[in-house]
């Protein structure tokens, strides 16, 4: 996917640069922006290290367990029918906690663990189960309490109040997650029959 975005952007800029007569600007951009990338990296990496360090302390002290427990009722509601004591459920609630705390690198392995647990329940079917769809969709719509990377960049560019956007981010995230969950539920009812039929025709093709 990204190989197309990358190539298209560069080729399009060469074409547009020629048409607009801005080839010297394009040349300068190519040579300057790569070192700007390193400057950007330097301004981000400190905050990333600080936050990962603090979160490691929170995980070791069990402070994150508290939030996992807060999540149980919500997770029970979203993953109806899934045993709350199962490995899958545990991994799901920890995945949601890690997302909330902005621990992308911790959230992904937990989410993948939850996916492979759900895979066992799905008995290796080629069609995604309801729980799988819900888990993935929740992960594509991020809810984050403290957006550290964004705040670090805002601070770098001289924001008077880098964290002022937190309430707006929370509300926007909640809106986006709720709309995603509603779509999942709405299509869960209408989509199943069609899926069953598609599966049937797929099997039919295989038999031929």
């Amino acid at each position: 996917m990204m190989k197309w975005v990358f190539s298209a952007l560069i080729l399009l800029s060469v074409v547009f640069g020629m048409m607009n007569g801005q080839m010297s600007e394009v040349t300068n951009a190519a040579l300057e922006e790569c070192s700007t990338a390193v400057t950007l990296f330097l301004s981000l990496v400190g905050v990333m290290a600080l936050w990962s360090g603090l979160m490691n302390v929170a995980v070791k002290s069990g402070a994150t367990n508290f939030i996992t427990r807060l999540f149980r009722p919500i997770a029970k509601l979203l993953f109806k029918g899934l045993d709350p004591n199962s490995k899958a459920f545990q991994a799901i609630s920890m995945n949601m906690t890690a997302n909330l705390l902005g621990l992308g690198n911790a959230a992904t392995p937990l989410g993948l663990e939850a996916m492979s647990e759900l895979e066992k329940e799905n008995k290796g079917s080629k069609i995604a189960s309801n729980h799988m769809v819900m888990l993935v969709v929740i992960n594509t719509a991020s809810i984050q309490l403290i957006p550290t990377t964004i705040a670090a960049l805002r601070l770098k560019h001289g924001s008077a109040s880098p964290f002022e956007i937190i309430p707006a981010i929370l509300l926007a995230s909640i809106f986006s997650v709720i709309s995603a969950v509603l779509i999942v539920i709405a299509f869960r009812k209408t989509g199943l029959k069609k899926d069953a039929q598609d599966n049937f025709t797929e099997n039919g093709k295989e038999q031929k």
Binding site: L9, S13, V14, V15, G17, V26, N28, A29, E33
Partner: peptide, 8 residues
């Protein structure tokens, strides 16, 4: 950067 500089 190139995309922006070209006006695209």
């Amino acid at each position: 950067g190139m995309f922006k500089a070209s006006g695209a």
